[in-house]
Design a protein around this nucleic acid. Structure first.
Length: 905
DNA sequence: CTCTCCCGCCACCCG
DNA sequence: CGGGTGGCGGGAGAG
C-alpha cells in the first residue's frame, strides 16, 4: 500500500523529484527485459503483457502471426510490480492511461535495452518503482523516424553478400513495440529504395545500402525523364505568381506519368524485386520514389513539402482539393521521416515571403565516379569555400576511393588535398603548423562564417558555396542552395541550414563509410546550431566529436544480422560494441578502411534526429582561468575572436546549469541544457584520480547530450587533457581523442557512467595512432565486453580535427573516439569487469548530477527477470529505463545508449 | 495558431 | 473468406 501511495503521488507529480525519478525510472525500465524477446529473429515468445495496457502485444502469440493487440488482461500471476501497477491503474484513470502508454512504448524500449542481458538492470526498485510512470513517452518518442532508426539499427547497412537477412514484420513489430501498421510504413519506403524487398507474406529481405547508389541514380534518371525539375520550377513559379495554387491546371505539360505505378525495379539481384505491385500504387512506395526523385533532380536539393505534394497530386490526377493536399503532406512526412532516418535528407525550412515552409534537403550519398585527381581538386577548391560539407564529402570520396582502388591510401589523399590547398596562398585553410593535416579548423570556419554574417554577406557566403562543383549528380548538394537557382527559396542563411551543414557532412560520411548512415552529427555543428549562429562558440574551443546516439545506431547497423541469441543486443547500444566488431569488418572490406574507430566518429554525426533543432550539444567551460587545457583549442582557435563569445555563452550556460543542478533535475534535463560545470568538476576529480588529470582541474568540458538517438547517452568531455598528442603527422588528421566521461542520460540514471580520465596507459599502440596518450576504452556494460567506447586521451580535440572528423576517421585509425570493439578488447583500459567499470559507476553517476542517487546496487541491478517475468508483466517489461522519455527536452531521439548495467552479474 | 504526424478504422486484395 | 496490406484522414501533441 505504501508503495502504492508513493507511486500515485509520483505519478501525479511527475516533475517532482526529477533526479530521483529518473533514477528510479531507469531502474524500472531496466527491469523487465525479456530476453526471449530480445532476440530479434526469434519470434517473440509470449510475454505477458501488462494488461493494463495494451494492445500491442499479445502475449503468447507468435510473432509470425501478428496478433492483435488485445487488451487482455491476464490473470497471470502478477509480480509485485504488476500488482502495483494494477492498483495504481485502478486508482486513477489518468494513471492508467499513463501506464498504458508506457506499456506501449516499453516494448520498444525494452528491446533496445534488453539486448543484452547485461543491461538489465533491474530494478526492482520496488518502492520507487512507479514513479517513473509519470512520464509517458512523448510524441517524439513514438515518431516514425525514431522507430525507423530502431528498425534500421537491427540490420547492417552493408550486409555481407553472403548473408541474407530476412525481416519478419511481426517480429519487428513486436520487438519494436509498435503496431505492424507502422512497420509497413517503414518497409514501404525502404522498399522503394530497394533496401528491402518483399519475399513473402510478412517477410522481407534486407539488402542494405549496397545498391542504394544505383537506385538513386536510377531514380535520378527517371526524375529527369519525368521532368520533375521543370515541374518543380513551374510550381514554384506559380506560387510566386499566385499565392494559391490551383491544382486544376496541369502544371506540367507534358510529363508523362507513364510508369509510375510500379516500383522501379532496378533489377536487383538479390531478391526478386519488388513483387508485383499489384496494388494500387499510389502507394507510399511510389510516393517515396517520386519524392526522392524530386530531390535528385533539384538543383538546390531542397524540396518543400507543398511542392512535392502538389506534384504528386497532379500526377495522381486527383482533384486538387485541400484535403487531398493535406493527406499528401502527411504521407510525405511519413516518408521523410524514414528518409531522414536513412540520412538521406534532413529537415530544413525554406523562407519565402509568405513565411517559412517546411522542406527537406537531400544529404544523401555521393558517388565515387570521380577520378582521384578530380576528387583532390574538388576538395582543394572547396575547402576555401567553407564548404565543410562538400569538403567532407569529397574527402570521404577520395579516401574511400583510395581504399577501393588503391590509388592512394587515405593519408595520401589527405596529403594531396592539403598540398593543393596549401599551394593556394589565399586559402584560409592552409595547413597550420603541422598540426594536423588538412583538416579544417572549426575556429577558422566559425570565424569566417561570422565574418561573413557580420558583413552581411550572407548572400555572398551562399554564393560562394555554390561554387562547389558537383561531383556527380547524386552527390551531396552544396551546403547551401544557390540563391540564384531558386530564387524563391531563401534558405535561411543563418539559421539551421547553415549550421546544419556539418551534421550533414557527417551523415554523409557515415553513410558512405557504410556506417549506417543514420545520422550524423558533429558536436561542433550541434553547438553551432544551438547557438543559433554564433559560430563563436566553437572557435575557441577544441572541438570534439562525440559519438552521438547515432553512433550507437550506427554500430548497430553495422552489426551482423541479428542472431537470435544475441539479438537482443541489437539495440543500439548493444550493437555498438558488437556491431562494430562484426560490422566493421565488412565495412572495412567494403571501404577498405582500416580503422573502425573512425567509423565511430562518424556515427556521432549521425544523429539526424536532432538535426537542427536540438542543440544537444553544449560546451561547458568552467570559468577557471586555468585551463590551459585547451591547448589545442588555443592553438587553432585562439586566434579567433569568437572565443570571448563563447565564454559568455558558457557562463550563461553555466549558470543555467547550476540552476538545473540545484533542482536536481533529471539528467535529461541536464543534458538538454548543459552540464553543470561544478558538478562536473566534482565528478572528475574522483575519476581522475588515476591520472594526471587530477592536477588540472577540469578545464573544459564538452558535454554532449545525445539528442535523440542515443538513449540519452551523454558524453562529457573534458578539455583539459594535454594536447600533447597533437597531430601525428601533418598529413594525418589529428586524432580526436579526448578524455571523456560518458554520462547516462537522465533516464539512464542507474547506469554506470564511465569516465576516462586521460588514461596513461598506452593503449594499444597499434590501434591508436596517438602517440602520447593511450586511448581510453570505456566499456559499455550493455554492449557486452565487446563494445567499448574508446577514447584517446591524449589529444585534445582539435578544432580542426573536429571539423573533418569524418574524413579522418575513415582513414586514420587513431582518432580519438574510437568505438572499435577490437581495440577495446585488447586494450581497453576499462573493461566491463574491471573494477572501475563496476565499482565506480555509481559514484560517477552521482557526480554527474544525476539526480537520482545511484547506488551501486541500482546500477548493477541486473534485472531480475524472474521478478518481472510474469506473463502479465509483458508490457511492463518494458519499463526499461529509458522510457521515460527524456523529457521532452532532449528530443526525440530516444535511444539511449544502453549501458549494461553492472556488469553482469 | 501551425506544423507534425500518430493512430487505427476499414477497404483492398491476395492466397 | 480470412488475413495481410496499407490508404486515409481525424484529431491531438508540439512548438
Amino acid at each position: 500500500m505504501e508503495v502504492n501511495c508513493l507511486t500515485l503521488k509520483d505519478l501525479i507529480n511527475p516533475r517532482l523529484n526529477f533526479a530521483i525519478e529518473d533514477g528510479e525510472n531507469a531502474q524500472k525500465e531496466n527491469i523487465f527485459v525479456d530476453r526471449s524477446r530480445m532476440a530479434p529473429k526469434t519470434p517473440i515468445k509470449s510475454e505477458p503483457i501488462d494488461l493494463s495496457k495494451q494492445k500491442i502485444f499479445t502475449p503468447e502469440r507468435n510473432p509470425i502471426t501478428p496478433v492483435k493487440l488485445v487488451d487482455r488482461q491476464q490473470a497471470e500471476p502478477w509480480t509485485p510490480t504488476a500488482n502495483l501497477k494494477m492498483l495504481i491503474s485502478a486508482a486513477s484513470p489518468d494513471i492508467r492511461d499513463r501506464e498504458k502508454k508506457k506499456g506501449l512504448f516499453r516494448p520498444i524500449e525494452n528491446k533496445d535495452d534488453a539486448f543484452t542481458d547485461c543491461l538489465q538492470l533491474d530494478v526492482v526498485g520496488d518502492s520507487a518503482v512507479d514513479e517513473f510512470e509519470k512520464q509517458r513517452p512523448s510524441r517524439k518518442q513514438k515518431s516514425l523516424g525514431l522507430l525507423c532508426q530502431k528498425f534500421l539499427a537491427r540490420y547492417p547497412s552493408y550486409p555481407l553478400s553472403t548473408e541474407k537477412t530476412t525481416i519478419s514484420l511481426d517480429e519487428v513489430a513486436v520487438s519494436l513495440g509498435v503496431e505492424r501498421r507502422r512497420i509497413y510504413d517503414i518497409v514501404n519506403v525502404l522498399e522503394s529504395l530497394h533496401l528491402v524487398s518483399r519475399v513473402a507474406k510478412n517477410q522481407y529481405g534486407w539488402h542494405g545500402r549496397h545498391s542504394l547508389p544505383k537506385t538513386l541514380r536510377n531514380l535520378q534518371r527517371l526524375g529527369e525523364e519525368q521532368k520533375y525539375e521543370e515541374q518543380m520550377a513551374h510550381l514554384q513559379q506559380k506560387e510566386l505568381d499566385l499565392m494559391d495554387y490551383k491544382f486544376g491546371e496541369r502544371k506540367r505539360d507534358g510529363c508523362p506519368d507513364s510508369q509510375d505505378p510500379q516500383l522501379l525495379d532496378f533489377s536487383e539481384p538479390d531478391y526478386p524485386s519488388s513483387s508485383a505491385n499489384s496494388r494500387k500504387d499510389k502507394s507510399l512506395r511510389i510516393m517515396s520514389q517520386k519524392f526522392v526523385m524530386l530531390f535528385l533532380v533539384s538543383k538546390t536539393k531542397i524540396v518543400t513539402l507543398d511542392v512535392a505534394a502538389k506534384i504528386l497530386i497532379e500526377e495522381s490526377q486527383d482533384t486538387p482539393d485541400h484535403s487531398k493536399f493535406k493527406t499528401k503532406v502527411r504521407r510525405l512526412y511519413d516518408i521523410a521521416n524514414v528518409l531522414t532516418s536513412l540520412a538521406l535528407i534532413k529537415k530544413v525550412h525554406v523562407t519565402e515571403e509568405r513565411g517559412r515552409k517546411p522542406a527537406f534537403k537531400w544529404i544523401g550519398p555521393v558517388d565515387f565516379s570521380s577520378t582521384d585527381e578530380e576528387l583532390v581538386d574538388v576538395s582543394a577548391s572547396v575547402l576555401p569555400e567553407l564548404k565543410r560539407e562538400t569538403y567532407g564529402h569529397v574527402q570521404l570520396c577520395a579516401k574511400q576511393k583510395l581504399a577501393r582502388h588503391g590509388s592512394f591510401n587515405s593519408d595520401q589523399a589527405s596529403e594531396r588535398i592539403q598540398r593543393k590547398v596549401n599551394s593556394e596562398p589565399s586559402s584560409p585553410y592552409r595547413e597550420k603548423q603541422g598540426s594536423g593535416g588538412y583538416s579544417l579548423e572549426i575556429g577558422s570556419l566559425a570565424a569566417v562564417y561570422r565574418q561573413k554574417i557580420e558583413d552581411n554577406s550572407q548572400a555572398e557566403a551562399f554564393a560562394n558555396q555554390r561554387a562547389i562543383p558537383p561531383l556527380s549528380s547524386l552527390e551531396a548538394a552544396a551546403p547551401f542552395p544557390s540563391l540564384s537557382v531558386d530564387s524563391e527559396y531563401c534558405v535561411n542563411a543563418l539559421a539551421h541550414p547553415v549550421l546544419s551543414v556539418a551534421p550533414t557532412d557527417l551523415q554523409a560520411f557515415s553513410a558512405q563509410n557504410g556506417l549506417n548512415g543514420q545520422g550524423g552529427v558533429s558536436l561542433a555543428s550541434a553547438a553551432l546550431e544551438a547557438e543559433s549562429l554564433k559560430p563563436a562558440l566553437l572557435a575557441g574551443q577544441p572541438l570534439v566529436y562525440v559519438p552521438s546516439t547515432s553512433l550507437f545506431m550506427l554500430c548497430g547497423s553495422l552489426q551482423e544480422p541479428p542472431s537470435p541469441g544475441s539479438g537482443s543486443e541489437r539495440d543500439s547500444r548493444g550493437s555498438e560494441g558488437a556491431a562494430e566488431r562484426s560490422a566493421t569488418p565488412s565495412v572495412q572490406k567494403r571501404l577498405g578502411e582500416d580503422r573502425k574507430p573512425r567509423e565511430e566518429e562518424e556515427p556521432a554525426t549521425k544523429r539526424q534526429s536532432r538535426d537542427c533543432e536540438d542543440g544537444p550539444l553544449s560546451l561547458v567551460m568552467p570559468k577557471k582561468p586555468s585551463d590551459s587545457t585547451d591547448i589545442a583549442s588555443s592553438k587553432t582557435v585562439d586566434k579567433r575572436g569568437p572565443a570571448p563569445h563563447e565564454d559568455i555563452h558558457m557562463n550563461g550556460q553555466l549558470s543555467a546549469a547550476k540552476e538545473v543542478s540545484g533542482k536536481a533535475t533529471a539528467d535529461c534535463f541536464i543534458s538538454s541544457e548543459w552540464g553543470n560545470p561544478s558538478r562536473n568538476t566534482e565528478i572528475e576529480k574522483p575519476l581522475k584520480e588515476n591520472e594526471s588529470t587530477k592536477e588540472s582541474s577540469l578545464l573544459q568540458y564538452l558535454y554532449v547530450q545525445s539528442p535523440a538517438g542515443l538513449n540519452g547517452f551523454s558524453v562529457l568531455l573534458s578539455g583539459n587533457q594535454t594536447p600533447r598528442g597533437v597531430g601525428p603527422s601533418s598529413g594525418q588528421l589529428p586524432p580526436l581523442s579526448v578524455p571523456c566521461m560518458v554520462l547516462p542520460s537522465p533516464t539512464l540514471g542507474p547506469f554506470p557512467v564511465l569516465y576516462s580520465p586521460t588514461m596513461p596507459g598506452p593503449v594499444s599502440s597499434a590501434s591508436s595512432a596517438l602517440p602520447s596518450t593511450g586511448p581510453v576504452t570505456l566499456g559499455l556494460p550493455g554492449l557486452g565486453s565487446t563494445a567499448h567506447l574508446l577514447i584517446g586521451p591524449a589529444t585534445l580535440v582539435n578544432p580542426k580535427s573536429s571539423t573533418l572528423p569524418s574524413t579522418d576517421a575513415q582513414l586514420q585509425g587513431p582518432h580519438s573516439l574510437n568505438l572499435s570493439p577490437v581495440m577495446s578488447r585488447s586494450h581497453s583500459i576499462i573493461q566491463p569487469e574491471s573494477p572501475v567499470y563496476g565499482g565506480h559507476p555509481a559514484s560517477v553517476v552521482k557526480l554527474q548530477q544525476s539526480p537520482v542517487p545511484v547506488t551501486p546496487k541500482s546500477i548493477r541491478r541486473t534485472h531480475r527477470e524472474t521478478f518481472f517475468k510474469t506473463p502479465g508483466s509483458l508490457g511492463d517489461p518494458v519499463l526499461r529505463r529509458r522510457e521515460r522519455n527524456q523529457s521532452r527536452n532532449t528530443s526525440s531521439a530516444q535511444r539511449r545508449l544502453e549501458i549494461p548495467s553492472g556488469g553482469a552479474d
